[in-house]
């Protein structure tokens, strides 16, 4: 950031919107964990979101609301999240990075930057979360499917501020299961699978499957979900659904694993997590 000239710390969201829009070349700063790998010549100002009051996790009649600067540790320790859909998001947050990093990585940064440690997007897809974005024109709400359809940077302008993640009401009592498959303990996901499930007896009423880290953007598997709804969830169906997911997620190579291997993992992890969600 050799051309950085200004640093702003607004005290409210309104002020932040004003500051980020005031001049071109300004960028947002949240947890700061992406800063060391950002070497932008075009950034001339930073607007720090730390003091604008977005670090909340609150219960609302419409939704659970997670402020964009809430850190992973807060998500992990939130009893609201621990009791929402089998505690999926709290479990996911607990596996992002390490203790000191979880004190720094923010929810907004994790979903916006989509880096190797971005474990939140796939489960947010599975939870049908909504992402709130504010700019000078006002607030826009994006369903997770749209937000993560491509890299969020293609959706957002420099002046857009991701302010909040909303988790919908009505699925609190769903069960869930999550696996982050790593090459080495405590490292980045080769592939992750999140399953959110609602059962009546042995029959699936509702299900969502999110796959992370296997492809450039996180993926839902609507084909697999359709196969499951109103069907009896047993081992052979779980296996079949795993195969469907495998066929429908376009995996790519990176240093953590080949696309081939990730496809294989998707198949196995979808099966495993479906069965686990069923019994949890």
């Amino acid at each position: 950031m050799q051309n950085l000239k200004e640093f702003e710390r607004p005290q409210s969201l309104d002020e932040a919107v004003e500051k980020i829009s005031a001049k071109p070349g300004r960028r947002l700063l949240a947890g700061g964990t992406g800063l060391s790998i950002t070497d932008s010549k075009t950034t001339i100002g930073l607007v720090d979101l730390k003091s604008v009051g977005l670090d909340y996790i609150e219960d609302d009649s419409d939704a659970i609301k997670i402020g964009a600067t809430a850190v992973m540790r807060a998500l992990e320790e939130s009893s609201l999240l621990q009791n929402y859909a089998g505690g999926l998001l709290a479990d996911v947050a607990a596996e992002v990075g390490t203790t000191p990093l979880r004190n720094m990585i923010t929810a907004g940064g994790n979903i916006t930057q989509l880096r190797v440690w971005s474990d939140l997007p796939a489960p947010l897809l599975a939870l049908d979360a909504e992402i709130l974005v504010t700019d000078q024109e006002g607030e826009t709400t994006y369903p997770a499917q749209k937000f993560f359809h491509r890299h969020p940077s293609q959706l957002l302008d420099d002046t857009d501020i991701v302010t909040e993640i909303q988790l919908p009401r009505g699925i609190e009592n769903y069960s869930s299961s999550y696996t982050k498959f790593v090459a080495v303990d405590d490292s980045y996901a080769v592939t992750s699978v999140s399953v959110v499930l609602d059962m009546e007896g042995d029959t699936v009423k509702d299900v969502r499957i999110g796959v992370g880290s296997a492809s450039p953007s996180p993926a839902r598997c609507p084909e697999a979900e359709e196969e499951l709804v109103d069907a009896e969830l047993n081992e052979s169906l779980a296996e079949k659904v795993g195969e469907i997911c495998r066929a429908n997620v376009n995996t790519t190579d990176n240093v953590w694993g080949s696309g081939d291997y990730k496809s294989k993992l998707i198949e196995k992890l979808v099966k495993k997590n479906l069965l686990q969600a069923k019994t949890s």
């Binding site: 700063l29 964990t33 990075g97």
Partner: peptide, 24 residues
């Protein structure tokens, strides 16, 4: 932010000093 050699306590919580711009 990977190795933890710069771990400090920041307002009582462990944090990594190599990733915190001093303004924060």
């Amino acid at each position: 932010g990977e190795c933890g050699a710069c771990t400090i306590h920041f307002d009582g919580e462990p944090a990594l000093a190599c990733m915190i711009p001093v303004c924060q």
